[in-house]
Nucleic acid binder design. Structure first.
Lengths: 352, 352
DNA sequence: GCCTATAAATGGAACGTTCCAATAAATCAA
DNA sequence: TTGATTTATTGGAACGTTCCATTTATAGGC
């Protein structure tokens, strides 16, 4: 039954003995056509193996139903989860979103955005790649395509953002560490060109300052946001004269790396060195020891972003309010018992 | 400069003082137009903020450059890696593939495939969802759209497949276990409705038979292909009267679950119970203990699939040869020392 | 100068839909 | 019956490209 050339509504019309307009109406589920006619047409559609041509339709409709999700790193389970959250709401709205990966590469991102625009997307949810230039989204804005940023924001952009409360999350985590009796704290991983980094580091700093940790007792080491980066951070931190006894990591991947590096040195994550992660990916719970981490409800943020996008499309606007998602610290085993209750010698300077 | 209605080649033509045809030629990089004219046109394109309308173009060209990748579970890092491999080759071919997730749901898969067809994809690389019905790809075949299956195959389909050598991988793993002195072996996780499962189990069985393990010493327990499934498998296996001492797991996620469950019971993965995974995801190396696993070169298979797809599109065929990727067993720590030399202390393990 | 050959630019007809305005058919009020 | 009203159906003109067949401009040969 594989016809040579693809079937069009004209073929269906001929087959069913009606006009192309009638077929079009049936396709759109219009209530104007007589039920028997609709049945006849639908049968013809089935018979000729018709495939709807959305491109042709969009030519007239000027309103496509394609939504793009631009993700900066698909291999990071964190972003995969974000994507899944978004998908859930789009699915229930009958929309199939297309995911494109930029692999944290601004040039690739440019290509991806261009391609999606050419495809005539109705809207875009983007987790911008690191090093995105300020002008990267100008074309989108000019074209009036609604855009939402998820998880990351750009310095001076007016595009709505859905992000967790990074500042507060970092604050909570640092406060937890200090409460456990740690006095020399580190912040591991990430780099200053990310706004997220500044927010998290800001929360860390504020906790240290308000809870009486001197600036010289804070170690901040930038690094890759991966296991490898975590390993490197720990190594350089422990090489200093007065090494920290605890670290807040930029994300869970870094934290896993730190724990790995500790083990390699015969140190036990928790009792010997406390580590806290950020994002609370699913593995955090299953790690040995289980990772204490700042939970950000990734999938929930994804859903939120999708809802905002849907609303923007519906009200044909390009503006929307930012949304800062709640966070909370999930305490597990990677910070060990309270430091003061430990009879380990090694003369650590316990201030109080 | 945000014009109300989107600019078309007519607007550019007016702006540049040429005809629409000339603009079209410039857009396609034709060598027929005078360089100065091309420059003039390109400037106009920039000025009016023009966005190419690929839908309209495809209406005439009948050959889109959209390729879809349909993935059954994006949150599984294994499939994410597969996607990344494919992307690498598409990127260097200058095309942006769109990823769609089916979340292992055949109904969703149907929607996704329909949507991609309507979008006029040039080709599709699919890792079919579990429980896909035989007819699910009939429409695609009728429409003559090239399709390649990656990692999974459908029972009686004639669609080309790119997959690792599951049988051999499982054989190698089981042989390794037997070589370590194990005599009661288990196969954990997966379910019989997946062809992959049958292949892997087949390899396992063959190794056992040729290397002298009796059928009654083989325990086969189906289960979810996740950490949770692994936990369940181990629990039911250890509840039998003569429990196995080693297990080949359907994939790494199951293996992680098994190791977790062992730890919960105070057993040490390796010395107390040997476990081998399948797929060799990146985490396998970083686990404690590091997981012995069958490496399948996921990204490489993705690249392969992409190449095959490109070739199919180019030669406008819907047929291609299957490709069975090489596998190899990466021996790490999760099988412990040889079983026969057992009273050695567990050196590399962590503090119990 | 004229004719031919080549180079550069152009108008028009398609591509497969939607949607408006118009028609045809059926129903109803008088 | 007639006209008005409602219900179903239909033709035609868009939508923004590509590509073929032409036209126009430029150059070359004699």
């Amino acid at each position: 039954m594989a016809s040579r050339a693809k079937a069009t509504i004209f073929d269906i019309a001929r087959e069913a003995g009606v006009s192309k307009s009638t077929v079009s109406l049936v396709l759109q589920g219009s209530g104007l056509i007589r039920p028997e006619t609709a049945v006849k047409v639908r049968k013809a559609i089935e018979d000729v193996g018709y495939v709807y041509n959305r491109g042709a339709a969009n030519l007239r409709k000027a309103h496509s139903n394609v939504i793009g999700m631009v993700i900066n790193d698909l291999t990071n389970p964190f972003f995969a989860e974000l994507a899944v959250g978004m998908e859930r709401v789009f699915q229930s709205a009958g929309i199939v979103p297309f995911i494109a990966n930029t692999a944290e590469n601004p040039v690739r991102q440019e290509e991806v955005l261009k391609s999606l625009m050419e495809q005539g997307v109705a809207g875009l949810i983007v987790s911008p790649a690191r090093g995105t230039t300020p002008g990267a989204f100008r074309r989108l804005e000019m074209a009036g395509v609604p855009v939402v940023f998820a998880m990351r924001r750009l310095p001076e952009s007016r595009i709505p953002v859905i992000t967790p409360d990074n500042h507060r999350g970092a604050y909570l985590a640092a406060a937890h560490l200090i409460g456990k009796g740690h006095r020399r704290l580190a912040f591991f991983g990430g780099s200053a060109d990310l706004v997220v980094y500044q927010e998290r580091l800001g929360g860390f700093r504020e906790a240290c300052e308000t809870l009486g940790i001197a600036a010289r007792d804070m170690t901040v080491i930038e690094g890759e946001t991966s296991r490898r980066g975590g390993i490197a951070c720990l190594d350089t931190a422990l090489a200093t004269s007065e090494p920290p006894t605890a670290a807040l990591c930029f994300n869970d991947a870094v934290a896993f790396g730190v724990m790995l590096a500790l083990r390699k040195r015969g140190l036990e994550p928790g009792p010997d060195f406390a580590v806290v992660g950020f994002d609370d990916v699913v593995e955090a719970e299953h790690y040995m020891p289980a990772l204490t981490s700042v939970s950000v409800d990734t999938a929930g943020l994804g859903e939120r972003a999708a809802h905002v996008m849907l609303k923007m499309i519906q009200s044909r606007t390009t503006r929307a309010e930012d949304h800062i998602g709640a966070v909370n610290l999930v305490v597990r085993e990677s910070c060990g018992p309270d430091r003061r209750a430990r009879n380990r010698p090694a003369g650590m300077g316990d201030a109080a």
